[in-house]
Amino acid sequence: MSTIMNVRNAYKDAFEKRHGVKLGFMSFFAKAVVAALKDIPALNAEIEGGDIIYKNHYDLGVAVGTEKGLVVPVLRDVDTLSLAGIEKGIGALGKQARDGTLSLDQLQGGTFTITNGGIYGSLMSTPILNMPQVGILGMHAIKDRAMVVNGQVVVRPMMYLALSYDHRIVDGKEAVTFLVRVKDGLEDPQRFVLEV
């Protein structure tokens, strides 16, 4: 998480001044997830009866904790949104969730879900699929960990990711490839900015 944390620290004030919203981690995750979904379309699909429907849009469910429990409102067309647009959209959905003013339409139609148990201190958990979606990515707390870099032990901020997926559509190779694409995007966010 070093690169994203450095980018946030360097630009958070200018970002908030320009866009009127704080620069959080969720927008980076959303961008990395959409880039990975474009490479691994099986995770952006659903089973309907005996058919597999591959989605060509990216409507992300974003789990939000409320006093009455977890809800998953949907941020639409994430692939067309800027980081600021994603932050504003997630912020608005979170406020509506906590205020209890989400419509049924805002809770339906997601193509993939992201959930951040890390805000509650979770170091690792297994998220449960939000049917009929076939994938959900769980993010966990960022903690300093010892890493070996160029033969030296260094401390780096690390986060575990957990992917749950429907094995009827997604095989292990696709699941691991997806996780690696998300990891690569987070470690080098220029990849999804440049779409490479």
Rank of each mutant, 00 (worst) to 15 (best):
residue 81 L to S: 08
residue 110 G to K: 07
residue 144 D to S: 14
residue 163 L to W: 00
residue 42 A to K: 01
residue 123 L to N: 10
residue 194 L to H: 07
residue 114 I to S: 02
residue 81 L to E: 11
residue 156 R to H: 06
residue 3 T to G: 03
residue 193 V to S: 06
residue 45 A to F: 01
residue 58 Y to A: 05
residue 177 T to M: 10
residue 192 F to S: 07
residue 51 D to S: 14
residue 19 H to S: 06
residue 166 D to Q: 04
residue 137 L to P: 00
residue 165 Y to D: 03
residue 138 G to D: 07
residue 107 L to T: 06
residue 191 R to L: 15
residue 116 N to D: 07
residue 7 V to F: 13
residue 8 R to C: 04
residue 79 D to V: 03
residue 193 V to N: 02
residue 70 L to R: 10
residue 190 Q to V: 12
residue 137 L to F: 08
residue 21 V to Y: 09
residue 80 T to A: 10
residue 43 L to V: 11
residue 64 V to E: 04
residue 142 I to F: 00
residue 184 D to A: 15
residue 30 A to R: 08
residue 129 L to S: 00
residue 146 A to V: 15
residue 27 S to Y: 12
residue 11 Y to F: 13
residue 90 I to G: 00
residue 1 M to V: 14
residue 75 L to A: 08
residue 32 A to R: 00
residue 168 R to T: 08
residue 171 D to K: 05
residue 160 Y to D: 12
residue 56 N to I: 03
residue 163 L to V: 12
residue 183 K to Y: 02
residue 160 Y to A: 14
residue 10 A to I: 08
residue 64 V to W: 04
residue 43 L to T: 09
residue 168 R to V: 06
residue 97 A to G: 01
residue 135 G to H: 02
residue 2 S to T: 15
residue 165 Y to V: 04
residue 158 M to I: 14
residue 186 L to P: 02
residue 17 K to D: 13
residue 149 V to P: 02
residue 132 P to Q: 11
residue 85 G to H: 11
residue 97 A to K: 05
residue 2 S to D: 14
residue 120 Y to F: 15
residue 97 A to W: 06
residue 90 I to T: 05
residue 130 N to T: 00
residue 183 K to I: 04
residue 17 K to L: 10
residue 192 F to I: 11
residue 175 A to C: 10
residue 13 D to S: 14
residue 55 K to W: 05
residue 92 A to L: 12
residue 53 I to S: 09
residue 196 V to F: 09
residue 123 L to H: 09
residue 103 S to C: 08
residue 9 N to R: 15
residue 115 T to L: 03
residue 183 K to W: 00
residue 31 K to R: 15
residue 25 F to D: 01
residue 77 D to E: 15
residue 8 R to G: 02
residue 5 M to S: 14
residue 154 V to W: 03
residue 6 N to I: 08
residue 39 D to R: 15
residue 100 G to S: 06
residue 196 V to P: 05
residue 129 L to V: 04
residue 5 M to P: 05
residue 174 E to Y: 06
residue 125 S to R: 01
residue 115 T to V: 06
residue 35 A to K: 01
residue 101 T to Y: 12
residue 149 V to H: 09
residue 132 P to I: 11
residue 93 L to S: 06
residue 161 L to H: 08
residue 44 N to L: 12
residue 17 K to T: 08
residue 114 I to R: 02
residue 22 K to H: 14
residue 169 I to M: 09
residue 184 D to E: 15
residue 189 P to E: 10
residue 173 K to L: 14
residue 78 V to S: 05
residue 182 V to T: 12
residue 192 F to R: 00
residue 135 G to A: 09
residue 31 K to P: 12
residue 68 K to N: 15
residue 7 V to L: 15
residue 87 E to R: 07
residue 190 Q to K: 11
residue 138 G to S: 03
residue 187 E to G: 07
residue 28 F to R: 02
residue 53 I to W: 03
residue 140 H to K: 07
residue 126 T to Y: 07
residue 178 F to A: 12
residue 78 V to F: 04
residue 23 L to S: 02
residue 167 H to L: 13
residue 177 T to C: 09
residue 24 G to K: 01
residue 153 V to Q: 08
residue 131 M to Q: 15
residue 175 A to M: 10
residue 76 R to S: 09
residue 178 F to C: 13
residue 179 L to D: 06
residue 151 G to K: 04
residue 129 L to A: 00
residue 150 N to F: 07
residue 44 N to V: 11
residue 152 Q to P: 01
residue 130 N to G: 00
residue 163 L to H: 08
residue 101 T to A: 08
residue 187 E to Y: 01
residue 15 F to W: 11
residue 168 R to W: 10
residue 131 M to H: 14
residue 5 M to F: 10
residue 50 G to E: 15
